[in-house]
């Protein structure tokens, strides 16, 4: 099915003897925005790292537009058009704000995003462009992290807890910018612990619990009670 941008088949992940993900089957359609929710330690970040190629898998476990990519290295996955905004921002401290953005564009894919477009989206970054990335506030750093991923002009962008540790007003700024970002037919995965934020911007969701999908469905029609049950594992 070519209208699926990404599918996982029995995706598992291990850290040594510890198994973090169990046989996950997920799919994301072209242009779709899905949410991954789940409590701390549910395996959301592990899932993002697996898709991005930072955790290794069997080739067939992750299929991107009919191509098995599970066994590729992260740099190869990046050139295919998948970008990750990692949890905790993880900017390069030795690089200035602008250098962080430029290095994001290294993969050299064509598309709407470049420095100019990003500075229009987040004008504060242009003001701060020559500062070390570590001198920015948390919210501004998150803008750089998002910008860095966009610079790759990805077809699929993964956001891992972009609101973590930020003030509500900053979270609002960033979430207000999301529709502009995800326009243009880009597909997106939004990982959040804040359930209402995640459901508001997504079409479908998966709720993870201890490395398994506990619930999946339509973000707009799902009942809150069903989510609480899946989220906390009360039966």
């Amino acid at each position: 099915m070519a209208d699926q941008v990404l599918k996982t088949h029995n995706l598992c992940a291990h850290y040594g003897d510890f198994q973090a993900l169990f046989d996950l089957d997920l799919s994301i359609a072209e242009g779709e925005v899905i949410a991954i929710i789940g409590a701390n330690g549910a395996g959301k970040t592990t899932l993002m790292r697996s898709i991005a190629g930072l955790n290794s898998n069997n080739a067939e476990q992750i299929v991107y537009r009919d191509e098995p990519i599970g066994a590729l290295r992260a740099d190869q996955v990046a050139t295919k058009g998948i970008a990750l905004v990692p949890e905790g921002r993880q900017l390069f401290p030795s690089l200035s704000v602008e250098e962080n953005l430029i290095i994001g564009g290294r993969v050299g894919r064509k598309g709407p995003w470049n420095l100019k477009a990003l500075y229009q989206l987040f004008p504060i970054l242009e003001e701060r462009r020559n500062q070390p990335s570590t001198s920015l506030s948390g919210g501004q750093q998150q803008m750089v992290a998002i910008g860095r991923a966009l610079m790759a002009n990805p077809d699929l962008i993964l956001f891992d807890e972009i609101s973590l540790g930020l003030a509500p007003v900053i979270i609002k700024t960033i979430y207000d910018a999301l529709p502009n970002i995800i326009d243009d037919g880009m597909s997106a995965v939004i990982v959040e612990q804040d359930i209402s934020k995640a459901l508001a911007v997504s079409a479908r969701f998966y709720c993870l619990q201890e490395g398994r999908v506990a619930l999946e469905g339509d973000s707009q029609t799902v009942e809150r009670e069903a989510i609480s049950r899946a989220y906390f594992g009360v039966h």
């Binding site: 991005a52 190629g53 930072l54 290295r73 992260a74 740099d75 990046a78 050139t79 970008a83 990750l84 990692p86 993880q90 390069f92 290095i103 994001g104 290294r106 993969v107 860095r148 790759a152």
Partner: peptide, 8 residues
């Protein structure tokens, strides 16, 4: 790790 994500 993050550098790998930049295609390096």
């Amino acid at each position: 790790d993050i550098a790998q994500l930049m295609g390096l």
